[in-house]
């Protein structure tokens, strides 16, 4: 088990190192997320009461698009320079590569979300300290990263990769998006977290199912 984690860790570390040197993903995706949030705050009056009801949706629209952007960049660097071939030649199982890439994407997405969250709360005049939102974001992002890693691998090998990822990703991510929006609404409206319990359970179930399924199917997505 610890050997397995060590291998996964090596791939994560490779991605962190390349991110530290290029600052390719986190900065660009963060700027993009903030821009989306700013556009929404222009589109709706931030002072109105309605915004409290809409803000959950706004946040997850921004995070969904940001997530796809980050995932497609993370895979694009692998395919563009042919380093995916190198990665596949590593003496490890395919699901180790999947777990490594997935965990690295998850880490970058969480970083972006952690930085964008305060900006969101301020822009929409919401209570600034909402720790339970972190739980929703963590759970939902695991789901995004699981299906996103396999779909971005597929999309990176097609002719129209920018458009292929959303076409594959969004329909499948619908349960996570719906549940995350609903759970966020509950938290923003100040209701107890137990009200959002079933939503959180759905996301957790989605995460478990698709983490296993994507790891298993990854082999077929990278096969030459």
């Amino acid at each position: 088990m610890s050997e397995y984690l060590g291998k996964v860790g090596a791939i994560i570390w490779k991605d962190i190192l390349s991110e530290l040197r290029t600052k390719d993903i986190v900065t660009s995706v963060l700027v993009f997320t903030v821009l989306v949030l700013v556009i929404f705050s222009f589109a709706f009056e931030p002072e109105s009461e309605v915004i409290r009801l809409l803000s959950g949706g706004i946040l997850w629209v921004a995070f969904t698009f940001a997530g796809m952007l980050g995932l497609s960049r993370s895979m694009a660097v692998e395919t563009d320079k042919g380093s995916l071939q190198g990665l596949l030649l590593c003496p490890v199982d395919r699901d180790v590569i999947f777990m490594g890439k997935m965990a690295a994407s998850l880490l970058f997405m969480l970083l972006v979300e952690a930085a964008a969250m305060p900006i969101f709360l301020i822009l929409f005049n919401l209570p600034v300290f909402l720790p339970s939102l972190a739980l929703v974001a963590l759970l939902a992002t695991i789901g995004f990263a699981s299906i996103g890693t396999i779909f971005s691998t597929i999309a990176a090998n097609t002719k129209a990769r920018e458009i292929m990822l959303p076409i594959l990703f969004i329909p499948v991510a619908v349960p996570v998006i719906i549940a995350a929006v609903k759970a966020t609404e509950v938290i923003i409206l100040g209701e107890p977290l137990s009200t959002a319990r079933s939503w959180l359970l759905i996301i957790a179930a989605f995460d478990a199912i698709f983490l296993v399924l994507s790891a298993f199917l990854f082999e077929f997505a990278v096969e030459e």
Binding site: I147, I154, N157, F210, F220, A221
Partner: peptide, 10 residues
């Protein structure tokens, strides 16, 4: 192959 993966996930 890609399509088959999409179908199973779907």
């Amino acid at each position: 192959r890609y399509a088959a993966v999409v179908a199973i996930i779907g």
